[in-house]
Amino acid sequence: MIPAAFDYKRAGSADEAIALLGEYGEDAKLLAGGHSLLPLMKYRLASPAVLIDIGRLSDLSYIREDGDVVRIGALTRHRDIEISELLKSQVGLLPEVAGHVGDPQVRHRGTIGGSLAHGDPASDLPSAILALRATLVIKGPNGTREVSSDDFFTGFLETAVGPDELLTEIIVSKTPNATFGFQKFNRRAQDWAIVGCSVIVNNGSCGVGLVNMDSRPVRAAGVESAIAGGASAADGAASAADGCEPPTDLNASVEYRQHLARVLVRRALETAGK
């Protein structure tokens, strides 16, 4: 399978990428690790006329401490997140989740920015980003803006990143004493989650992110407030599927996904010591 022909532009900086996006508009697509976009292009589900390669913007690949937060460049690969000692000690949920993305070969190429900007409701990292209440930095022709994770995922394969914008950074609070859990249910090695969830418990407050339970990754607010109010893992997880409109497909019906969400959230809460 070979993608349809396209023009190839290599961006030398974030600003150049934004300028190229402005120039080519709807016809252009950014290429980071290519591990979501290239499969789509090979299946001809996407046929951009212009590919703007941002994969070489090494100044957007970093994991950096900054006071109370850790800043992660959008071009940071899953592998670099998985093995980061800084993240392991300060935001342990992220390396845990990154280590479950695809397989080692995928993690050597795929980036956190690509994973989030793609907006796939079944991707793993969005569950962690939602549970952690991360902030996403988006850069466009008129400068940068910050968006909370709650406002980032806007629909199926849609995010707050505009057509002429670039996701540049993910900001997460340091929570060295937090406990966390990640659960992903799939049938075969290397597969996407049929349902997945991230849980973090910190100082009595709780964050729960669910994937593949709606047209976009979502938070389980009912579970969060129940746990913050002192509920047990089993009682808290009972409301995990409330308000979700899960998809139905060959892998799972709506009812099965709702059941999975309750079971997986309970297990993740138990892993987090609840």
């Binding site: 290519g34 499969p39 390669d53 190429r109």
Partner: peptide, 11 residues
């Protein structure tokens, strides 16, 4: 290790 079917030569 990378999967060379999921990379472009230009990358």
């Amino acid at each position: 290790a990378v999967k060379s079917c999921t990379m472009l030569a230009v990358q």
